[in-house]
Design a protein around this nucleic acid. Sequence first.
DNA 1: ATGGTTGGCATCCAA
Length: 260
Amino acid sequence: MRDVRIATFNANSVRVRLPIILDWLAENEPDVLALQETKCEDSKFPVAEFEEWGWHTAIHGQKARQGVALVSRRPLGNVRIGFGDPLFPEDCRIISAELDGIAVVNTYVPNGTAVGSDRFEYKLRWLERFRHYLGERYRPTDPVVWLGDINIAPTPDDVYDSRKFLGGVGHHPDEFKRLSAILQFPLIDTFRTLHSGASHYTFWDFVIPRALERNLGWRIDHIYATVPLAARCTSCEIDREPRMMERPSDHTFVVAEFGK
DNA sequence: ATGGTTGGCATCCAA
């Protein structure tokens, strides 16, 4: 049996990015693709188009903003949406499921907007809530993948100008602290296990002219695994091709493979 | 120092 292939992509509208997503799926044949920023309520998600090409979907969306989904070759088990906590704000940022004994947890971490804003405080609270979510549901010995748009560049190598952005949204010590606490589960950054150094990015801001060509990017889309699963990780790669296509997302795909 | 882009929905907000 071949490796399990698990990918992530912030689509920035699943409807606009449908051709890019379907192309990428056909080319790469992942077992699961985690999508973020689908930006549509469930009734408007292009379920039929995915099914036409043999892909199952598990979706958790809302009108216009946020939204996450899992796309898979085979049906997923035990699909869960949200934190399952009625006290915590529910804005469609988390969906999880099981495949081949692996728990796949897909998140769209809040952006944070501006340091000191209510949205930034919400980002920090959200990350704390997520740490508890992991502890409530899983043990360190379980095979668990946490992936998605993490919206944090955790080290100086993960953003094109660390000095410029240190202390700003996405590269702030308070974010590093919350992420470190989550990773103490422990979880392993599968990309960093296999690749060191700067210039490996997954997001290039639309606002910056020719950002991709100049590689003015951020590595904010991550694939983490628990220790026993990380030991089975044979590859983790960023695919820049989709960022070069017509009408791209501002993010691109990351894909990891795990041996049986 | 500023502005540069995109998507969704409504003519502005979030990213």
